[in-house]
Computed example of a mutant assay.
Amino acid sequence: MARNPLAARSRTPHVSVLVTYRDAEGRQLPLPQAQTRESFTGLQLLTKRVLGFAEDSLSGFTQDFTIRQMGPSTFSIEVRAAATHGIRLRGRRAAQEYLTVTAMLHHLTDVIMGVSVAGVYLANHPDVRVRYVEDDFGPYYELFNGDRAVMAVDASSLEGLLTPEGMGVLCALVANLKQPGLAYATITQHTPGLKYVRRTQVATTDALRAFAAGQPLPVTTQDLAEARERARAGAASSSAQDQVPTAEGEAPTA
């Protein structure tokens, strides 16, 4: 009987992320240990918050992650979900559980990266503005640079990010990006068993360094509330216009 290839894998579902910080010439810069500790403390706090939202889906598993330094400013981060001692899975069920939990970790890692990238973008762009949108899959905010929509962020994620606790986490998370001479960081996400990797680059500017030093973000929870009110007022106005009765034989106006 052929062995299930998953049986040969680690029994601990995990997702790997590689983070590399570089200067404008693409060179790695040594980072102060205190800054690095602060940045990865922020990552720990953000990971704990996001994984907490999936507590029901990951019931029976304990989540943690490890960080290893791979170069002057390259770090390997592994997010794991280990089965508790009370769970014993074998055969096909074990393979299915492995795939399910790995997919969940992959999704949660996407959320962590998405929230981080959105926060860095806000810090880097003092003139950013937001628009609230609802579609069939739920509400989200669009971030605009001038008249150009540049990013869509899940509503609950952005609202959570802009709370005092979320701001503290983000401020710690970007500690490494305030290093003088640093231009950008590359984040590479890889799911074991798949050749596909996702790479995201985040830049650093004087505006972001100012945020890391204590300056507020250009968008607040009040801005989000006002964006929601504008969207709902616009939707109500459109609905009222659609319901205006017309005289017999008169074509409705656009």
Rank of each mutant, 00 (worst) to 15 (best):
T84M: 15
D110R: 03
A118D: 04
I112M: 10
A103N: 06
V101P: 00
T100I: 13
G86E: 15
L108V: 00
R90Q: 06
Q96N: 10
L105Q: 04
V117H: 12
G86V: 12
T109K: 02
T109H: 04
A94C: 03
Y121F: 13
T84S: 09
L108S: 04
Y98I: 03
Q96F: 10
A83Y: 06
V120G: 02
Y121C: 07
L105K: 05
V111H: 00
T102D: 01
A103D: 12
Q96T: 10
Y121P: 00
Y98L: 13
H106I: 02
A94Q: 10
R92V: 12
L99N: 12
A83T: 08
T109N: 11
G119T: 07
L105I: 06
R92F: 08
L122R: 09
M113Y: 09
A118P: 05
R90T: 11
D110Y: 03
L108A: 00
T84Q: 15
R92Q: 09
Q96R: 15
I112V: 15
L122Y: 09
L122S: 06
M113V: 13
H85K: 00
V117L: 07
H85I: 01
Y121M: 03
H107S: 03
L122K: 10
I112L: 13
A94M: 08
V101M: 00
E97Y: 09
R93Y: 08
V115W: 01
I87Y: 06
I112N: 06
V120C: 01
H107R: 12
L99G: 03
A118M: 05
S116N: 13
H85A: 04
D110E: 05
Q96S: 14
A103W: 05
A83R: 15
R90M: 05
V117Q: 14
A83Q: 14
V117R: 12
H106R: 14
S116C: 15
G114P: 08
S116A: 15
